[in-house]
Amino acid sequence: MSKIHVTTRINGDEAEFLCDAEETLLDVLRDHLNLTGAKEGCASGDCGACSVTLNGRLVCSCLVLGAEADGAEIATIEGMASGEKLHVLQQKFLDHAALQCGICTPGILIAAKSLLEKNPDPSETEVRYWLAGNLCRCTGYDKIINAVIDAAAEMRKV
């Protein structure tokens, strides 16, 4: 079976891989590139645990083919902190105890970062609707929403 050769950029680094046509970007990240921060919770776009950005746009990596990544810019949770320094959102998630099991956390952080880039001062309702595609079963969302709003306030100060 012939594979597709894909050249892409992930978290700023060039990446190359071979994939089958039916493999999703999530399959490629996890199985070929060993970037397991994006999680498969449903493989149908209903849980958001696999969220990444593709050319700056928030997507579910389970709903993107690996082949479609050719020539694209992809950002995953592994690229969110800079070196030892956590992103404000990551720090606020820890400060607010906005995670319990943590399986949804990478996807929610990516989605929240994408929100704050578009809307630096979201209302609670805006945060809740933006994150509606990121299921969390542990927290009841309360502390997640607090963390995002607090991070937004902190980021506006800078």
Binding site: G45, R57, L58, V59, L63, G133
Partner: peptide
């Protein structure tokens, strides 16, 4: 249609 993520596509 779908979530914010789905809206991206």
């Amino acid at each position: 249609i779908g979530s914010t993520q789905v809206q991206g596509r």
